[in-house]
């Protein structure tokens, strides 16, 4: 099995540790991973702003970089969802379909493809899980509270395998954090208010860390936490699943 690692642009530039943890975790689990060095972005920021028609360049590049792998794995539910739903190609639609089928968000790849049932990680802290909307409602990584259906959560299932980690319960387990791509600046007031409320839910329930399978939500919440001089930190789920604190 050969996995192509897809690292969204802002993780590459701002959060290399999340990417490194993803790579190391996959390697630890015996997967052969390569990072196509010429990748840039999936085109989501443009598409969500109404400019999907301008994403052909991004799409073709994405296909070129990733078409050959058995699986494509990324530590970002939101980017994966975008690829799954909107990646097309005028010349090579067959390849696009194929790419759409084999792209996975990291935690769902661990639970559904690798069928991981134990991890060697240890993380002795109280952790709040932010269910990022695109991962949850889009990729169905966890059950949403809107539906009358049996609950499950792939990220939590994995976190429960981490030694000494304590999950905190939230008042609103799956409310959006308000990042929303360009929404975060176009609707600054609402975006920040949503972020503040989300952060408060975690803080009030004693979380020391807020984690998620989407770094963009965390970046937004981190911006708010740091502005509040809070001690609470954000950490991508890959970093916790790969944590070796003793």
């Amino acid at each position: 099995m050969h996995v192509g690692l897809f690292i969204p642009c802002y993780i590459d530039q701002f959060y290399p540790n999340a990417a490194i943890a993803t790579l190391k975790l996959l390697q630890k689990l015996g997967v052969k991973v390569s990072y196509p060095i010429h990748q840039t972005c999936c085109g989501q920021p443009m598409a969500n702003s109404g400019f999907e028609h301008l994403t052909t360049g991004c799409n073709d590049l994405f296909i070129k970089n990733f078409a050959e792998f058995d699986y494509i794995v990324s530590p970002s539910g939101s980017c994966v969802l975008h690829v799954k739903e909107h990646l097309h190609s005028q010349e090579e639609e067959e390849k696009a379909v194929n790419v759409r089928k084999k792209v996975y968000e990291l935690t769902e790849f661990l639970t559904d493809v690798l069928k991981v049932d134990k991890l060697s990680a240890r993380f002795p802290h109280k952790v709040g899980v932010h269910q990022s909307c695109h991962g949850q409602r889009g990729l169905k990584m966890s059950q949403m509270t809107e539906l009358v259906a049996a609950p499950f959560s792939k990220p939590m299932q994995l976190l429960q395998m981490v030694q000494d980690l304590e999950l905190v319960e939230l008042s609103r387990p799956d409310e959006c954090c308000g990042f929303g791509g360009t929404f975060c600046v176009a609707e600054e007031a609402i975006s920040v208010k949503m972020g503040k409320d989300r952060v408060a839910d975690h803080v009030n329930h004693g979380a020391q860390y807020i984690t998620a399978a989407d770094m963009s939500c965390l970046m937004h919440m981190e911006g708010i936490l740091r502005r509040q001089n809070s001690q609470v930190k954000v950490l991508h789920i890959a970093e916790i699943l790969n944590a070796e604190e003793v």
């Binding site: 701002f14 540790n17 911006g223 502005r227």
Partner: peptide
Amino acid sequence: AWYKQRDMPEPPKQSFSEWYK
């Protein structure tokens, strides 16, 4: 509009691509 009520992410010393190389 980002900075008005949120801090910017701190740019790390190297990007992941640089680290990977």
